[in-house]
């Protein structure tokens, strides 16, 4: 069994009117958008704009106060994170969260066990995913002995191993060198082209955003202030004012 990271053709995400407040602070306010199956969208915005909170609500880690999230037209409301994962939503964490006492293969096999009960099969699949992400020679290592960029790849591998229809990437390029970023971008492009995997990514690295995304969503103070093609959004005066300083385009 080789690692054809097979995903279903579907994976359309619809976010309807979700909000989340923490005490007096409104983190996300009535945000609606949709990602068509097979597309790559980027979610950008300044720190504290509510990007990760939005992710958490899609993945079920936090309950939205209002609104609904649908995958291929089916509501995910009330499902636990593990159920949402099995429904086809894979996610990574902004700060990597590997299983430190397990080898890389075991880390990724945990993800693969979402669709198989056969541990040997899960391990085989995990090896394939690790190869795909360029971690093939470190399969038996532990997360503490690999570099941070490699740990970011591991985070992606574990999510990919669950065979998601929709992949949520939370700043996986942050801290990577340009060459590593380009490698990641190429991997995601290939996955998207080969399997129709839908991707929603939170990213600060504009180089990756511009290279990958079909559309860009901009959050500011919990509100969606732009939703359009990358080149349109980067020309939007409101977006420029709130977030895209000169340094983002150097």
């Amino acid at each position: 069994m080789s690692a054809s990271v097979a995903a279903g053709s579907a994976g359309a995400l619809t976010v309807r009117n979700i909000s989340k407040r923490f005490g007096g602070l409104v983190a996300v306010s009535e945000v609606s958008f949709s990602v068509a199956a097979g597309e790559i969208h980027a979610l950008i915005g300044p720190n504290g704009a509510g990007k990760t909170t939005t992710f958490n609500m899609i993945a079920g880690a936090q309950l939205p106060d209002t609104g609904d999230v649908l995958l291929d037209g089916v509501s995910l409301a009330g499902l636990r994170p593990d159920q949402i994962c099995r429904a086809g939503v894979g996610r990574t964490f902004q700060i990597v969260r590997p299983f430190n006492e397990l080898t890389l293969v075991e880390n990724v096999a945990v993800g693969a066990l979402a669709w198989t009960d056969d541990l040997a099969e899960a391990r085989d699949y995990a090896r394939g995913v690790l190869e795909l992400l360029g971690l093939g020679d470190k399969k038996e290592a532990r997360p503490s002995s690999i570099t941070l960029p490699d740990r970011k790849c591991l985070e992606v591998a574990r999510a990919l191993a669950t065979k998601p229809k929709l992949l949520l990437l939370d700043e996986v390029m942050a801290g990577l060198r340009p060459t590593e970023t380009d490698r990641m971008v190429a991997i995601f492009k290939k996955l998207n082209a080969d399997t129709g995997l839908t991707i929603l990514l939170i990213e600060h690295v504009m180089r990756a955003v511009m290279a990958l995304s079909h559309r860009v969503l901009v959050l500011n103070y919990g509100r969606l202030i732009a939703d359009g093609k990358p080149e349109e959004v980067t020309r939007d005066p409101e977006v420029l004012a709130c977030y895209l300083g000169a340094e983002a385009f150097d």
């Binding site: 994170p81 299983f99 397990l102 075991e106 945990v110 999510a159």
Partner: peptide
């Protein structure tokens, strides 16, 4: 076994395990 791997995942990081499909 699968059980053991799931347990260890829970032991190491329960949120990450849950996000990877561990009930």
């Amino acid at each position: 076994s699968k059980l053991g791997l799931y347990w260890q995942a829970i032991r190491e990081d329960q949120e990450a395990a849950e996000a990877s499909g561990v009930p």
